[in-house]
């Protein structure tokens, strides 16, 4: 289980995170939403070690990991995708996924036994594109590949930063089904950031809402949208009043 509490992070004068919290249990799909600039990506970067928090705690399965570097955190069992895609452009799709698996096999051989690169490619609809250089794929396909690559590390927690960005309705639905089935298959905890609220509502049991660097509400989809604070952020102060 991932549990994040009281994270603060400033860039110069900008308080990107001002006491942010997040929680995700094994087998749970958690949503993380909030307006642009709320600090969602910054929170992912802190949790995965790409940024050092100014204060706060990050614990994974009871072990404190705040401030570790990205390699150690990945080794500890948190995988991620990037809002601005980061693929190995000249490697083939298969190699992109395989390289993650090979590293996992070196570090955690017992977990890597549960990973099958070909099956992952199949699951994410990439089998036909396996030999294509990743850099020549359309944006949306690169996103799918990044998720498959992250899953090839056999993570306990998977953090997806806007996986549905740029996908059409049909693709978004398929993505939702795939994420759910990945969860069922591996019992990984999955944190999904997105602006597509219908998508978030359809797959998440619990949603964290952030604004201005901290959590303003948390709950299941049905309850959450009755919360005036959430309505205020999403629809505007007039509607909440």
């Amino acid at each position: 289980m991932l549990s994040v509490a009281g994270i603060t992070k400033s860039f110069g004068g900008v308080h990107a995170l001002a006491g942010a919290d997040l929680e995700c249990s094994a087998g749970e799909i958690v949503g993380l939403i909030g307006p642009n600039g709320a600090g969602k990506s910054t929170l992912v970067n802190v949790v995965t070690g790409f940024l050092k928090p100014d204060a706060g705690t990050v614990s994974l399965n009871g072990r404190e990991i705040a401030g570790f570097d990205p390699q150690r955190i990945s080794d500890a069992g948190i995988a991620r995708t990037f809002q601005n895609l980061r693929v190995f452009r000249e490697l083939s799709v298969r190699q992109n996924v395989e390289v993650a698996f090979l590293r996992c096999r070196q570090l955690r051989p017992e977990k890597a036994m549960k990973v099958d690169v070909d099956a992952l490619l199949e699951e994410f609809g990439l089998t036909a594109l396996a030999e294509t250089p990743a850099g020549s794929l359309p944006y949306g396909t690169q996103r799918w590949m990044e998720i498959a690559r992250a899953m090839a590390t056999a993570p306990d927690i998977l953090m997806l930063d806007e996986p549905a960005a740029g996908l059409n309705n049909e693709e978004t639905e398929r993505l939702g089904r795939t994420i759910t089935s990945v969860r069922d298959r591996t019992s990984a905890g999955i944190v999904v950031i997105d602006h597509d609220l219908r998508f978030i509502n359809s797959i998440c049991a619990r949603i964290f809402v952030m604004d201005q660097g901290k959590q303003i509400a948390v709950g299941d989809p049905a309850a959450l949208w009755k919360n005036p604070k959430v309505v205020e952020v999403y629809v505007g102060p007039d509607a909440a009043a």
Partner: peptide
């Protein structure tokens, strides 16, 4: 960065 995220 992507390599870092895979613990490479």
């Amino acid at each position: 960065q992507a390599a870092d995220a895979l613990a490479i």
